[in-house]
Design a protein around this nucleic acid. Structure first.
Lengths: 244, 244
DNA sequence: GTCATGGTTCGATGATGAACGAACCATAGC
DNA sequence: GCTATGGTTCGTTCATCATCGAACCATGAC
């Protein structure tokens, strides 16, 4: 019996399956556009090889490129690709047996706390925000994804977030992105991007050039805990689990 | 600069990147355990080759095997692997340009309507249920994933769902799984599995041997629409988008 | 104009790994 | 005991593809 028609996952997976290409994609998860030579450097390749890899990623639709002068800037093709990479990171973290047990310096906790996921906030802080928004009814599941409710729109506007134009779009304004370190969803999409920009503008989060990790300033930590407190709604099953 | 420590996604992706292995994994998405020869057949391989591929998948942690007599039964390693495959299907459906445009017979719509995703319900009906549960406050985001609320527990129990023991577990009872055809979340995890069994028990959904597609009986369609109506909560942004 | 630099293209080389046939092992049925 | 069948292991063959050096093109600086 032939298998019923379904998307061809093998080519995409194979594209990510090469260590060099995977390293490049991971580097692009920082959200910044990188030049071809920079990407070749992170993968430890010569120019020729890097160019070949990037051409494949481009043909596969995983990245986009923009030429500026004699430089060529590369970015991930979009949030959906970023979500896929995060999903893979989650699976890989589960499956690979021992290696992640090595202590990896003080930067790793920072990554778990707050980091860039392409163009939005991920990590414990990202999840905290997502949980608060849903718990407070600012975010609702609708037919085609997530959207802000009236109160959510007001809430974020009051916070100083420059919300994108809600006019009809092909891509939803809000999406859920699976957080690989926290194993839950955080907010993604244009709204999440705007939110991140606002938080950076207030100097609550600071981007560091070298890493995807974001540093949470003391003022930021206090503000986030005040503005996005843990949702009062807690599952009774969880409580039952604590005192059985 | 060396990349900050992060999970190694390349090996996992490479494992799925081979067409033969991808075909096997897709076949396993039906949730049933398949024998080695069956898997070899769906991929069109000889015994020797199939065996080699399965050994790799096993070492990679993507599948589990159980020996019964002279047969060896293969299943996906768990829900998290299934979620990864679904994520890949979603991305692949986006990226591959033309191919999915071919009309693919009457079974494809059925797949989009209701299908198995490893051990739970996916497709439009799965999303419908998920949306209703969240909209009605039966499902809440908590620190570590999703959980049933008090009303949710009562709701499902009243429906005849044999809910699993809520005692502390390493894996959450509810998870969100990204639906590749609907592009939104549907419910996954032990609770979703129990729910599917209940719906099958009522003969609202019927499993067909050859496919992952589930047939929704007329009685089932009526019952599902009555019990899991579309959430009354609809995003104001969506409304604004309709009459700008 | 010249020069340096970012990027692409072209072959050639080399290694990885997918595929198969054949021999082998183990279980089930007789 | 014998035989059929499901799976594994072993060598071999063959393609694919990552990698590199070198030549080449284009842009920017001078």
């Amino acid at each position: 019996m032939t298998v019923t028609h379904a998307p061809n996952i093998a080519p995409v997976a194979a594209l990510i399956g090469d260590p060099a290409r995977a390293a490049m994609l991971m580097a692009l998860m920082g959200g910044r556009a990188l030049t071809m030579s920079e990407l070749g450097a992170v993968a430890g390749l010569g120019k020729a090889t890097a160019s070949a890899h990037l051409r494949q990623l481009l043909q596969g639709g995983l990245i986009t490129t923009r030429s500026a002068g004699r430089h060529k800037y590369v970015t991930l093709a979009g949030p959906r690709v970023a979500a896929l990479i995060e999903a893979l990171m989650g699976a890989a973290a589960d499956l690979s047996p021992a290696p992640p047990r090595i202590r990896t310096g003080p930067r790793d906790p920072a990554m778990r706390m707050a980091r860039l996921c392409y163009d939005h906030l991920a990590g414990a802080r990202g999840v905290q925000i997502f949980d608060h928004l849903t718990g407070a009814g600012h975010l609702a599941h609708t037919g085609d994804g997530l959207s802000l409710t009236v109160t959510g729109t007001a809430f974020l506007t009051r916070l100083g977030v420059a919300l994108p134009d809600p006019r009809p779009r092909h891509t939803p304004l809000c999406r859920a992105c699976l957080d690989w370190s926290e194993r839950t969803s955080h907010l993604a999409g244009p709204v999440a991007r705007a939110l991140l920009l606002a938080l950076e503008g207030k100097r609550w989060l600071i981007r560091t050039p070298g890493t995807r990790a974001l540093t949470v300033t003391p003022a930021g930590a206090a503000a986030l805990d005040r503005i996005f407190p843990a949702s009062p709604l807690r599952s009774p099953l969880d409580d039952a689990a604590r005192n059985p």
